[in-house]
Every structure is written in C-alpha cells, then in structure tokens.
Amino acid sequence: MATESVVSAFRVLEAVAEAQPVGLSELARTVGLPKSTVQRVLLTLQEVGWLRPTETTPTRWQLTYRVVAVVGRAAGGESLRDIAVPVMNELQLATTETIHLAAPDGDSLVLVERLDTSHRLRAFLPLGERIVLHASATGLAYLSARGQGYLDDYLARPLSAPTPDTITDPDRIRTVVNEVRERGYSKNIGGLSLGISSLGAPIVGPSGAVAALSVSGPSSRITEDRFDELGTQVRDAAARISRALRGER
C-alpha cells in the first residue's frame, strides 16, 4: 500500500474513533478527502476487521473490538487487559456495578474494557470511547498519578464541560487531584454523564501511570454513603493490577 494510502487509512480510523458512529459525508469533511477515497478506506478497514458499519440507514461507521485489543497491548508484553480482567471480575462481583478500564491516548483516556452490571439501570460507555480527564473518575485518578508538570500543562488548555456538573475551574481541579492523591481514589458525580457517579483509581506500571480503573453506576444507587467502601475497593483492585504490571506480588 502506498504511503499516502496508509496515512489516509489512519486519518479515517482516528476520525471514526473521535466521532463514532459517524457517516461517510461527515468523515469526508473531517479528514478533507473525497467521499470515494473515504469509502474505499472504510471498506478496506472493514475487510481487515478494524471498522464495522451499523445496521441503520444511512450507514454509519464505528470501531470494532480489534482496535481495543491492540490498544490493550500498546505497552508490549502481557497486555494490560489480560492482567486487569481477572481483578475486574472480582471487583464487579463485589460491587455489583459496572467496571471500566481506561488507558491514555494523548490528552484523554480510551475505554479498553468494560464489565457490565446485571442491573437494568446502569452506567454505559462504548468500548473505544474517549474519556475527558477532568470530567471523569478514571481521568482524575490518572491525573493524580501523573507529575505536577503534566497536570499544569493539561490545565493550561481549554477545558470542555460534557455536563453542567463538570468541574472546569483549574484551581478546583488541582484541589480535587490533590485530594485523590491523599485518598487514593477519585470521586465523580455527574461530571461525565448526568445521573452517574463513579469512583476511580490509577494503575501504575514500571514507568508510571498506564491506566485507570473505575466503578460506576446511577447516582441513585451509588450514593455518598457508599463512596468510602467502593472507593477503597477500586483503589485496592487498581493496586493489585499495578503490582502485577511491575512484577510484584
């Protein structure tokens, strides 16, 4: 495949990841390529298992789990997912809520694994979803495990507000991150999705923060009187994964 074609394929793949599910016309505008070129790229990426079309009309495109699997192995060796899932299973059984595993990609996190609750009313994010750091339990946990320079650089940029409850004041976020560092877990009430509360903790490998873990559910069920219990559970689970990544017992 020519270099130009490879570049086009990655541009389309990244655009789908940002806006999925997304249609052909929107993709063509986003990447600045002719529709015919984007269509060929989409069909090629579908053929190799990276993208799949929705069953809606008109057709829209989204990532497959293959992308998530590759992201999970980005650090090399045994994948983060392989190590984390057994611990996540235990955490899900103990809390009976949704468990999320997110790994960094640029200035956000990407959801690489999710274990769902059996409750009908539940938290839901699609695999491959990009997660705003300052608006989420996983993101705040990840920020707490990064250095002060990283945090300062991140807060110097415009901060989006996915919901009216998202904290966007840099000084307030610094205070929250310091609290997470002291407590060992983050708390997020409605910052990413209205009506959803989450507790998160960072996962730290040999070279530093590599991911974050969270337990999430409706705020009507994950109430403040449960925060300490659930926060401690997710903190301990993240610590177990961290030790395994570092080769410690």
Rank of each mutant, 00 (worst) to 15 (best):
R120D: 04
G247F: 05
L133V: 06
V132G: 04
A17D: 11
I222M: 12
R52K: 13
V204I: 14
T117M: 00
S198L: 10
L133H: 12
A15V: 04
A161M: 09
I189W: 14
T117V: 02
S5C: 00
L125D: 07
Q62I: 08
V204H: 06
A84F: 04
M88F: 08
G231Y: 12
T163Q: 01
E47M: 11
A244W: 04
A123K: 00
R181P: 12
A209G: 01
L115N: 04
A123G: 01
A17F: 10
L121K: 01
V22N: 11
A212D: 04
F124R: 06
L159C: 09
R52D: 11
T44F: 09
L199S: 00
D225E: 15
L143N: 05
S193Q: 14
D236C: 12
L24H: 08
I222Q: 05
T117D: 00
E55L: 10
G190A: 11
R221I: 15
M88Y: 13
R240K: 15
V234E: 07
P86W: 05
G195R: 02
G76F: 15
P21D: 13
A15G: 06
S136Y: 08
A74N: 09
G247S: 04
H119L: 11
G217M: 10
A102N: 12
L43C: 00
G205Y: 01
S197F: 02
F227V: 09
V87N: 00
L245S: 04
E78L: 10
V71M: 15
E179A: 14
E248P: 01
Y150H: 15
V67K: 03
L213D: 10
G195Y: 03
G205F: 01
P58V: 09
R11Y: 01
D107A: 13
L43V: 00
P162F: 09
S144T: 01
R246F: 12
E78R: 15
M1C: 07
V70I: 14
L13Y: 06
G247R: 03
D228T: 07
A102D: 10
L33G: 04
R243E: 13
G76M: 11
A145Q: 01
T3P: 00
Q46E: 15
A74P: 03
V85R: 08
S198P: 10
T3H: 10
S5I: 00
T64W: 09
L63C: 00
D82M: 05
